[in-house]
């Protein structure tokens, strides 16, 4: 996860954080007037952006999603729940790019879902990352006993998955070539040594899935079975959320930067990397 911190050395990445956050917030704010659970959840077509930002801008997309969501809250819904929103949206922007590398061997890892396999991987990532984000936010508001776990979880999952699957592939196919032409892909800006190398990548992938699905099932069962309220849910879900964090540490990301360098060398000829 060191790229989450080393990215701040690059002015371009700092600017991408600011612009991503501003775009996300600017599209979130007009929908503040359509709350599903007021003060916590509203209709959010803007939720496609964290997936897109993540795959294009990597760690800058993660920070952009977190800050953008917080700024969105600045326009009328800044509450203690905004802390959970910040963390949940950070993972919504962090996990897609980290998981993407786990599904592809060396070669063409471009986050452009223009093949059946890449589209299927993209959809799978949207599903699990939406569940993780929803579990984090629902866990946080349940722990504080602000809202019951179940309705918040279901609404956030659907709020993330629908725009992510309906709009995401179209946006990525439309935007990827342009962002690449601008030279703004995170794999082109960051150096391999600034990005964490994958360790037990498959295990990391499995941990994210087990942690996310486990948190969802455990939270729903505890509440539906009447085993306890928010604090019980909050304590019971901690091991599952820790699995997600551990998975994120194992997933890496350096392989994508190296693959992008190899692709660039092939496209531009042998002298491109030495000039």
């Amino acid at each position: 996860m060191k790229e989450v911190f080393t990215m701040w050395r690059h002015t371009q990445m700092v600017v991408l954080v600011a612009l991503s956050a501003a775009i996300y917030a600017a599209v979130l704010i007009p929908f503040k007037g359509f709350p599903i659970i007021p003060g916590a959840i509203e209709i959010r077509p803007a939720n496609v952006f964290p997936f897109v930002f993540s795959l294009l801008f990597g760690p800058a997309g993660a920070w952009g999603a977190a800050i953008g969501n917080l700024i969105g809250d600045f326009f009328g819904t800044l509450t203690v729940g905004s802390i959970g929103g910040f963390i949940g949206n950070f993972f919504l922007g962090l996990l897609p790019y980290k998981l993407w590398g786990a599904f592809f061997r060396r070669g063409n890892m471009e986050p452009n879902p223009n093949t059946a396999k890449k589209l299927a991987v993209y959809v799978a990532i949207v599903v699990i990352v939406s569940v993780v984000c929803a579990a984090i936010i629902a866990w946080f508001v349940a722990l504080l006993e602000l809202f019951p776990f179940t309705p918040v979880l279901i609404l956030i999952v659907s709020n993330n998955i629908i725009p992510g699957i309906v709009l995401g592939p179209i946006l990525l196919i439309a935007l990827y070539p342009r962002v690449k032409r601008f030279g703004l892909l995170w794999t082109e800006i960051m150096e391999p040594e600034e990005v964490s190398a994958p360790r037990f990548q498959t295990l990391g992938n499995v941990l994210v899935w087990v942690g996310g699905i486990g948190a969802l099932v455990a939270g729903l069962l505890i509440e539906a079975g009447g085993f306890g309220g928010g604090v019980t849910v909050g304590i019971a879900l901690i091991p599952f959320l820790l699995l997600v964090v551990a998975g994120a540490f194992l997933l890496g990301g350096r392989e994508q930067v190296e693959a992008a360098e190899e692709m660039m060398a092939v496209e531009e000829g042998p002298e491109a990397r030495t000039s």
């Binding site: 600011a18 612009l19 501003a22 917030a25 704010i29 800050i67």
Partner: peptide, 9 residues
Amino acid sequence: AVSTALRLV
């Protein structure tokens, strides 16, 4: 980044 984003919204 936070202040720039706020200003750009």
